[in-house]
């Protein structure tokens, strides 16, 4: 899952953590090169936007030197980084929702149906994902592409495991509805 050539508990990795915590920019860059792509892909799926994903990754790495000491080497570093990234992404999505930039909860089926008839003749899954309510999309991505259990998702999002299941089920229902028109 990490996408890294260096295992999480390798001395190199632990050295990097220490150097990043000491404010070493080269070490921060090295950590980025190790895990940046995997983290970006997760951010991209969660936010459904290249720019937002880059912003989230930017915020994560800019804040790491002051926060990486909170990684206590329990579990993999990439797993810890992903959990922090998920929270950052959620904060961003919530803030956007507060700005009423896009009302994700209203008219979702119309939006999805509208997209189904787009000019390309086939539905772009990525675009359908972008139209899903962010809380549903988050559960879908964490469960299906990151392999989190509902218990883990619940702990991460501050919801119950049952709520996680419900969100996933609704997300799949909406997704299927959108994809149904595809040849």
């Amino acid at each position: 899952m990490g996408g890294s050539a260096i295992s999480s508990d390798s001395p190199v990795h632990l050295d990097l953590v220490g150097q990043v915590a000491a404010g070493d920019t080269d070490a921060l860059a090295a950590l980025y090169r190790l895990h940046g792509a995997a983290l970006f892909r997760l951010a991209r799926r969660l936010t459904a936007s290249v720019e937002d994903a880059e912003d989230v990754l930017h915020d994560l790495f800019v804040g790491l030197p002051e926060s990486i000491h909170k990684y206590h080497e329990r579990g993999s570093l990439i797993g810890w980084l992903k959990r922090v990234l998920v929270r950052l992404a959620l904060m961003r999505l919530r803030a956007e929702r507060r700005r009423h930039e896009v009302d994700l909860h209203e008219g979702i089926s119309e939006a999805v149906a509208g997209r189904a008839a787009d000019d390309f003749g086939r539905l772009d899954v990525e675009r359908v994902m972008a139209t899903l309510p962010s809380d549903m999309r988050t559960v879908l991505v964490l469960r299906q592409t990151e392999g989190y259990s509902h218990q883990e998702i619940a702990a991460l999002l501050g919801i119950t495991p049952g709520a996680s299941r419900v969100r996933l089920s609704r997300a799949i229902t909406l997704l299927k509805a959108a994809l149904r028109g595809r040849t």
Binding site: F40, R44, R45, L179
Partner: peptide, 16 residues
């Protein structure tokens, strides 16, 4: 399909 989303995505060159 969900798993295929952004499978090969990479951050922009200038993000670092």
């Amino acid at each position: 399909d969900v798993e295929s989303v952004a499978r090969d995505a990479e951050p922009g060159d200038r993000l670092l």
